[in-house]
Design a protein around this nucleic acid. Structure first.
Lengths: 226, 226
DNA sequence: ACCTGAACACCGTTCAAGT
DNA sequence: ACCTGAACACCGTTCAAGT
């Protein structure tokens, strides 16, 4: 027979979990997913963890550090396997970039923060390493690859950030977007090209646009010597 | 002889200037130039104008609106004249983009805010119109031009934003940049490509990089059908 | 070493009341 | 219509004091 339950003096409610950096980051991601990144404040994260804001500073340097950690955490989901798969390098490169984009599309607010402060966590470095490996496999000269990676990341991150801005709170608020009114408005005379191209300028973040962008950027990187 | 001075009852000190949207934006730009964009708060701008924060809301919808207005204001300085000049279209396009970049380099914090919330003021629209005109002059198909403009702007804005992050307060604080330590550090085994390329990855926002990027993006846009 | 409460020095935005 | 003071509902971060 089993012995009587150990530690019977333990309270009914499970003890509040020990504070860890990972726990803080996970709590922050939960809040961001539910209420948006702007609600991820030290005080709110601390509240969720049943402690005070000051306690977080043992594990997190400041708010920017917390945001960076959140970003790196979600970058763990990016699929880097095409780097070692078979097939044409351009397509494999596009696959990795697409995976990165899909991850950021799910967290557009973090995409915006990635634009502002370039991440530098281990998962981000893994991704960059992977992109460089693929560019090298494609015979792209080193100097072009070094700057090209930036171009690729900027494009993918920017599109994800834009997507978030559009479908998020901002647009629901009926944000006065001058581009929209110029495209289908009375400003045909002032901005003829914008009016002429119309919706093509606004056609958002669909997979087509992403795929075209990757192709274009990869082609430019490979074809432009320094 | 002249008549005696009119309105002699006027006070010695010049009356405090009437509040206008333009005055608010200019005061905000002055603060941003002196102390950084993060100091551009409603309360601080109001203080500079010798009034209360609540008074600004007659002319400015909210903080985001103020930032957007600041951005559009500085975009007035972008030189669009290459659009109607003579010469190869690619070079003229690069000239306009370079002018845009130089303007943003002077206000990197606004570059970051431009990445997050795409501007849409009249000066921004003028710029987009100009870019589209040049792409059309180059015979770039409409659909490629529509998406290509975005690519160009994203690159130029991103580089300017990055430049600001590096030379600004963040770097001075000795920000722990994992990229830097991976490049010249002990992680040669973990990130061989990053280590191998080294400083080429970090070589910042020089004119060479900008020029190369414009060339590459323009080449990609022109060469990649949709 | 870790955690806490309290404090400091701020924010954006709204609103009733004035002119 | 514009302007204001005061209030509401928050912030990040620090620090002395506790365990």
């Amino acid at each position: 027979m089993m012995t009587r339950e150990e530690r019977p003096s333990r309270r009914e409610r499970p003890a509040k979990p020990a504070l860890t950096r990972d726990g803080i980051v996970r709590a922050a991601l939960a809040i961001a997913g539910a209420d948006g990144l702007e609600k991820v404040t030290m005080r709110r994260v601390a509240e969720q963890l049943d402690t005070g804001a000051a306690s977080l500073y043992v594990y997190v340097r400041n708010t920017a550090d917390l945001h960076a950690a959140m970003l790196d955490e979600i970058l763990a989901e990016v699929d880097l396997s095409p780097a070692t798969a078979a097939g044409p390098w351009r397509q494999r490169l596009a696959e990795v970039m697409t995976s990165y984009s899909l991850v950021l599309f799910a967290s557009p607010a973090l995409a915006r923060s990635a634009l502002v402060s370039r991440p530098s966590g281990p998962n981000y470095l893994n991704l960059i390493e992977c992109l460089l490996t693929l560019l090298r496999a494609g015979g792209v000269p080193d100097d072009q690859a070094a700057w090209g990676v930036d171009l690729l990341m900027l494009f993918a991150t920017g599109i994800a950030a834009e997507h978030g801005t559009r479908s998020g709170r901002a647009d629901a608020d009926g944000e006065h977007n001058a581009m929209v009114s110029a495209v289908r408005g009375a400003d045909t005379a002032r901005y003829p090209e914008i009016a002429r191209l119309g919706d093509a300028l606004l056609s958002g973040a669909g997979p087509d646009r992403l795929a075209w962008g990757f192709q274009a950027v990869i082609a430019g990187i490979a074809a432009t010597p320094r």
